[in-house]
Amino acid sequence: MAAQLYKDGGFVADDWRHLGDDEPLPEAGAVILPLARFLENVATAPASLKLAVLLRAADDPDALAPHLSRLELIAVDFAKFSDGRGYSTARLLCRRHGFDGELRAVGDVLLDQIPLMRRCGFTAFEIVHAPTRRALEAGHNVEVPLYLQPAERAGERPAGARAWARRPAASPV
């Protein structure tokens, strides 16, 4: 299957994989686990196995606080694109908890929501929706590149007199 992970302006190979609920924990590699399973295993996993976590919409990001400094990746699930809880999850991780690893949106991730997700701190996207994939590959930009509130995306610059207005970074991040 072609790479689904969209990051830094292109589709790239994914070093991580989502571990199925009935799959046993492997000895080595890099797997993404749902929150409960992550918390159960984080203390005992072998050093050869890297763990990342998948937060579902109702999960509280505070639960990850003790582990954040060691996490390379947090995936946030959008089971339905219309469920906007993941946007708050992302902002809390970035701002409140200072998470600076890869923040990845997974699930029902669609072209028109990606600009909003970026502004909430997402830096990577797993894409399954074919038209979204085509549009991203074609470099189709759907963003309104002027913002009326501060958010989490790196490099946004204040714009003009207004305290809350922002423009994107000079070069796309």
């Binding site: 469920d83 946007y87 600009p115 009326l148 809350w164």
Partner: peptide
């Protein structure tokens, strides 16, 4: 009005 326009976090509220 300005702050709420295309707010990235609050465009898919309940």
């Amino acid at each position: 009005r300005q702050w709420s326009s295309l707010h990235p976090e609050f465009s898919f509220l309940p």
